[in-house]
Simulated assay, not measured.
Amino acid sequence: MPAPTFLRQEPRAQTGLRGKLINITSQHGMVACPGNLAYGTSKAAAVYMTKQIAVDYAEQLIACNGVAPGKIVKEAARPVSQYSYDRTPCKRLGTPADVASAVCWLASDEAGSYQTGHNLMVDGGWMAF
């Protein structure tokens, strides 16, 4: 059971939910990860798990969503292939702050209570290309 603490809580007045689970998935849960079968498979499992938890726990007033980062760079000096820049419509790569902002938004009251089972792409438009 992924949410025993939530199941013991009363729903919040602001959202009507007992809680929100947020999984970190990846764009590689939805497209191939060349040369890394284990990583891609584990992220695809996280995408599926997000959807399954959302379906299984919606009646118990628990939402579950995922955040799917694309190419994220922690250090500006770290070498990154030109292909990554060329393939990303935003013409920059993501940062840890971009991912954190998505997680914080999903966890917030502003995100509401009717979003569940989604994977929010944080990829600068990579998957839309």
Rank of each mutant, 00 (worst) to 15 (best):
I53S: 04
V31M: 13
Q9I: 00
D98P: 06
G124P: 11
C33E: 15
G117R: 04
G40W: 03
D109N: 09
A97G: 03
A54Y: 06
V99H: 07
A68S: 15
T116D: 02
P69M: 07
W105H: 12
T41S: 14
L61G: 00
A13T: 13
Q14N: 02
Y48L: 13
N36Q: 09
A3G: 03
T116A: 00
N119R: 02
F129H: 10
D56G: 06
V122E: 05
N65C: 13
A58D: 01
G94S: 02
R12E: 12
P79K: 03
R12F: 11
V47A: 09
E75Y: 13
G70N: 10
M121H: 11
P11F: 01
R18F: 13
I62E: 02
V31N: 09
M121L: 15
V55E: 02
G112N: 00
E110I: 00
L93C: 06
Q9H: 02
R8F: 01
D56Y: 00
T88Q: 07
A3Y: 05
Y39P: 09
V67A: 10
P89H: 02
K20M: 03
R87S: 15
A45Q: 06
M49H: 13
P11N: 01
M49D: 07
R78G: 01
T116E: 02
V55M: 05
L37Y: 11
A97V: 07
M30V: 15
S81T: 15
V55D: 01
Y39W: 04
P2M: 03
G125E: 08
A3Q: 01
L120P: 10
E10C: 00
E110C: 00
